[in-house]
């Protein structure tokens, strides 16, 4: 029963054009910096997806394997919204010629649509699974990923699409160091999102309630926190984060129904960071993102695609609790 979807986790298409000249010569500081920048921006994408994993895991103890596919869905929705806004704004004189106007609106619109999608998903599919063992939820979300891929394929087709983003194509030239706009956008976007999330969890009432629910669901329920609503909110937030990651990565990486496969590397990142730790997710993502271009340059071809998994296995053997441990042993 091999199903005709045999492509693995993407060819080295995550490695952008700067690498085309992958000759092995002694490299300069500039080249190292160049690789570092590519690695960091890729790592930010992994980190963002990992953030979604960790958020859901922390709050609901569920593992959402479909996080990468939610990112894919977000990118597709943004794609359609941009087209829609382009059409719409043609009738609005003020916005007609404004560069990036439809992108900006579509960005916000996507976050909103995906957040709503997250709530619906939680209510319809995952709420019945509360209290089921984590393994069942893991399998469920794997299945969900397949469904999302088929749905996206049915709506948008299998052709890769480019997102009409204002960040696409342009580059800064910092004394020989070439930095794509999209790379800057990813890093800045990730930093902003992390900042917003930090403030949200630290200072808002509902953010603190979420933290409480993630520590002990039953106790949170007893002190009057609406745990079910908190769960829905967690899914909304992590779906929105996934969408943001999808929009940010789209200029680097074309959109197609299988782009969500990088979610598995992001999962590795989450575990390397210490599953259950939010800063760990970003750090793990950066670690894996940075490792990839260097491995691609120096080690046998194709190894960069599995470097995330090698790092993961090494981490699990040496320090299974991750960089920022958050799990404890069972008490008897």
């Amino acid at each position: 029963m091999p199903v005709n979807e045999s492509r693995g986790f993407g060819k080295p298409r995550m490695i952008p054009r700067v690498f085309a000249c992958g000759t092995r010569r002694a490299h300069t500081t500039l080249e190292i910096l160049q690789l570092l920048i590519i690695g960091i921006s890729q790592g930010c994408v992994y980190g963002l997806i990992a953030l979604g994993f960790v958020l859901i895991y922390k709050a609901t103890e569920m593992v959402n394997f479909a996080q990468g596919d939610m990112m894919m869905l977000g990118a597709f929705i943004a794609f359609s919204l941009i087209e829609a806004f382009d059409w719409l704004f043609a009738f609005v004189p003020v916005l007609a010629g404004l560069p990036g106007a439809s992108f900006a609106f579509a960005f916000l619109g996507t976050l909103f649509v995906m957040a709503a999608f997250g709530v619906v998903l939680e209510r319809a599919v995952l709420r019945p699974m509360i209290g089921e063992p984590p393994f069942a939820v893991l399998m469920l979300t794997i299945g969900l990923g397949f469904v999302l891929r088929a749905v996206a394929g049915a709506i948008w087709g299998n052709q890769p699409r480019a997102l009409d983003s204002p960040f696409a194509g342009g580059t800064f030239d910092l004394g020989g160091l070439i930095v794509g706009y999209e790379n800057v956008a990813i890093v800045v976007g990730t930093a902003l999102l992390c900042g917003v999330l930090y403030l949200f969890f630290r200072f808002t009432r509902i953010g603190v309630a979420m933290q409480a629910a993630s520590q002990n669901q039953l106790a949170a329920f007893y002190v009057g926190i609406p745990v079910k609503r908190v769960f829905a909110l967690v899914w909304a937030i992590s779906a929105a984060i996934a969408a943001a990651a999808g929009i940010l990565v789209a200029p680097v990486n074309l959109i197609d129904p299988l782009m969500g496969f990088i979610g598995i590397k992001a999962f590795a990142a989450a575990i390397v960071g210490g599953f259950g730790s939010l800063p760990g997710a970003i750090v793990g993502g950066l670690l894996i993102g940075i490792a990839e271009p260097f491995v691609a340059l120096h080690l046998p071809p194709g190894l960069s695609e599995v470097s995330a998994f090698v790092i993961l296995l090494a981490m699990l053997v040496v320090r299974p609790q991750g960089i920022f441990p958050s799990l404890q042993q069972k008490k008897v």
Binding site: E5, I142, G143, F146, R149, A150, A154, N158
Partner: peptide, 19 residues
Amino acid sequence: EIPGLEPGIFGAILVVFLI
């Protein structure tokens, strides 16, 4: 002609069974 139809159906069945 939907791409990924077969795995999609596998996935849907898995979801239905688990729930």
